[in-house]
């Protein structure tokens, strides 16, 4: 019993020491921490932006158009929405490795490779959510818009406008998935210090090395960032609601 209590107290001491160190690191403006944070934001932000650029039009097309094999496409998109990041990482690695089909680009272990992996992760999420959103909106508004004289492009714009809150939520989910994943960027980025070390890969490394201060600091920043991004999206959604 006494030994157990001493162990627990010892663990608590380690945790509080690490926490104190983490807070000190955050408030000292440590260049490495902020470099890692900015890289994570740049990679996940760019990947989500590119995924939105592809996923929204693709989701709209798949959701609005009636075509043969619609059910199969639905299932495919839903399957891709749940793709494990490590599998994405594996395939991007194979494609970008020197002997792979895109090896000549020399992108492996660069932030660009990380963006590609996260773009592949985020695109099906935005596509799937957009597809479902426009489909339900279309059923509700198609006839009204057409009977009011909408052309095909005006109909698409009207549907997009009515589905905007769900699409915004899809972008938010995709960004959350991208910034919190570790498997794909670990494989294609290589977790190279001052180059491809992102918050999640850094946390894994520091934890394995027993350097909990830096790991906790990055964990706090990651949670804060996720909170802030969600806050921004929620505010945007509420703004849309107010406009409604």
């Amino acid at each position: 019993m006494i030994v157990y209590n001493i162990t627990v107290i010892g663990d608590m001491m380690i945790f509080f020491e690490a926490l104190t160190e983490a807070l000190a690191l955050i408030f000292s403006g440590d260049a490495e921490i902020y470099g890692i944070m900015l890289l994570s934001l740049r990679v996940s932000g760019t990947a989500t932006f590119l995924a939105a650029c592809c996923g929204i039009p693709l989701g709209m097309f798949l959701g609005i158009r009636v075509y043969i094999g619609r059910r199969i496409v639905n299932n495919l998109v839903n399957t891709f929405m749940g793709l494990p990041p490590v599998v994405i990482g594996l395939f991007v690695f194979l494609a970008l490795s020197r002997s792979g089909p895109m090896g000549f680009l020399s992108l492996l272990y660069t932030p660009t490779a990380m963006i590609i992996a996260q773009w592949i992760l985020a695109t099906p999420i935005i596509t799937g959510i957009t597809m479902a959103a426009v489909r339900s909106v279309q059923n509700k508004y198609r006839d009204t818009a057409l009977s009011l004289g909408a052309t095909e492009s005006q109909l698409w714009f009207t549907i997009l406008k009515e589905a905007r809150i769900s699409i915004l939520a899809g972008i938010c989910v995709a960004f959350g998935q991208a910034i919190s994943e570790v498997g794909a960027i670990m494989i294609v980025g290589g977790n190279i210090r001052f180059s491809t070390r992102a918050m999640t890969t850094a946390i894994v490394l520091q934890t394995r090395m027993g350097i909990f201060g830096l790991a906790i600091a990055l964990g706090i920043i990651l949670i804060t960032l996720a909170f802030l991004v969600n806050l921004i999206f929620t505010t945007l959604q509420e703004g849309v609601e107010v406009i409604r």
Binding site: K140, T144, A150, E162, I243
Partner: peptide, 28 residues
Amino acid sequence: RREMGFVFQNPVVFSSTVKANVAYGLNF
């Protein structure tokens, strides 16, 4: 279609103000 108008049995309104709703067909 622009020569015709259709009022449905269960009409839906767009997620905007009454004014914007009435202006929809005119904006088209």
